[in-house]
């Protein structure tokens, strides 16, 4: 026990030095620096795609009355929620462009490994079975999507990688279609959250939504 002011000061300084030393021991993960250097290209690409999508939206707006009648007539399940979806789609596509260079070498990740990362923090799990076993998962990372800790998986598709994202809150009602100049996707309301499926324009993405819907358990 130290009582004198000088000893107390020395102790305080030693504690501060020790604290600084320990906190500085934390190092940024390998690969982060390279990813940060790629941000200008990725951001500019995403912004260009967003501008292109905005132009498309402007053009489509003139067709909206016709489209509305058609939607009513044919009773399409996927519907348009412009306020919610512009920001959400932007977030989803932006996230894919950032992560795309790091999708891995094609090694398969097991459902057990995915559940080990997904279940404790998000309360979401995949049930082994025919639907999920047929998915070849090559990338699994918990990420910030729509400002929430979410799971981002990539599976092998028929024409390229297919992105599957599980967000632990319901951001849409029913199902919403999203697209930019490279990708198209489905954002689907699930029992305890939101499922996102995005692939290139040629990829038949609905089948991945169906397989995921039947194999996912949402605890909350």
């Amino acid at each position: 026990m130290n009582d004198s002011p000088r000893d107390t000061l020395a102790d305080d300084l030693a504690f501060q030095a020790n604290l600084e030393h320990t906190m500085q021991l934390v190092q940024a993960p390998e690969g982060l620096h390279a990813r940060l250097l790629q941000i200008p290209e990725l951001a500019d690409t995403a912004d260009a795609a967003k501008r292109s999508a905005a132009n498309d939206t402007h053009y489509l707006r003139r067709l909206l009355p016709v489209a509305a009648v058609l939607l009513l007539a044919i009773g399409v399940g996927a519907y348009y929620q412009p306020g919610v979806n512009a920001a959400l789609a932007d977030d989803i596509f932006g996230h894919i462009y950032i992560e795309e260079p790091f999708f891995g070498d094609g090694s398969i990740i097991s459902i057990t490994e995915v559940n080990a990362r997904m279940q404790p923090g998000m309360g979401i799990s995949m049930e082994p079975g025919n639907a999920s076993d047929s998915l070849e998962i090559t990338f699994a990372k918990d990420c910030l999507i729509a400002k929430q800790r979410s799971m981002h998986l990539v599976v092998k598709g028929e024409t390229g990688p297919v992105n599957l994202m599980m967000i632990p809150s319901q951001l849409v009602k029913g199902e919403v279609k999203i697209a930019d100049e490279h990708y198209h996707g489905l954002v689907t309301q699930a029992s305890g959250g939101t499922l996102v499926v995005v692939g290139n324009k040629q990829e038949p993405i609905a089948q991945y939504r169906d397989r995921m819907v039947s194999s996912l358990n949402w605890e909350y």
């Binding site: 993960p29 982060l32 941000i39 951001a43 932006g94 950032i98 910030l144």
Partner: peptide
């Protein structure tokens, strides 16, 4: 990691 990327973005 995500916050760092988002910050620099």
């Amino acid at each position: 990691e995500d916050l760092t990327q988002e910050t620099f973005m």
